[in-house]
Amino acid sequence: MINSIDLILVLILLAVLLSLGSSRMMALIKIMALQGAMVSLVPIFIEPQARLSNGGILFFQLMLLIKAVLIPGLLYMALNRIAIKREVEPLIGYHASLLVGLGLVMLSAYITRRMGLSLPGDYALLLITAITTTGGGLFLMMSRTKAITQVIGYLMLENGIYLVGTALTKHTHNIYLVEFGVLLDLLAGVMIMGIILHNINRAFDDVDTAYLEQLKD
């Protein structure tokens, strides 16, 4: 079991690094779909018996559907309607971003060791992955100017926070109804962001947030 969960976590980490190094938005959306799918699988592999008993199966199917299919699908639709498909001038270059990503992994490993937590089982890698994903999402939002890349950064941040929750808290607290509410918020959020994105594209013929600088003091 340990091996399969490690494999999933490594894939999530890889997705973070890939997204930091890629300029094509289509590739970014595919990476997000992969990461979403992997993140939804993590809890099943942590505590298979406890997870799959009471109504959990339905919830994880829904989660997989939302994170790996619906949200990337919405982003795909948004991307198809806009003219620009590449991030041309990121604030921080791709190679530098990759380096930052590697730095994040190391920082997370350091934090995890310092926290000295008695994690459930031997899942130190889970916490490292969670912190890296959260930090990577924040970094992606700050270092890119295209609105759609910022949405992807936000999604990555949410994935990371979900992983932190899975890694740190006992699973008896998780009530599917509540978790489903969080997912629903996320889905609606991406939908609203997609609508605004479409309107930004219509107003400026671009989705660069550098145009959004009229309001300031």
Partner: peptide, 11 residues
């Protein structure tokens, strides 16, 4: 301007 304000608000 409303577009900009909404985008900043939501994000």
């Amino acid at each position: 301007k409303a577009l900009e304000a909404t985008w900043k608000y939501v994000l």
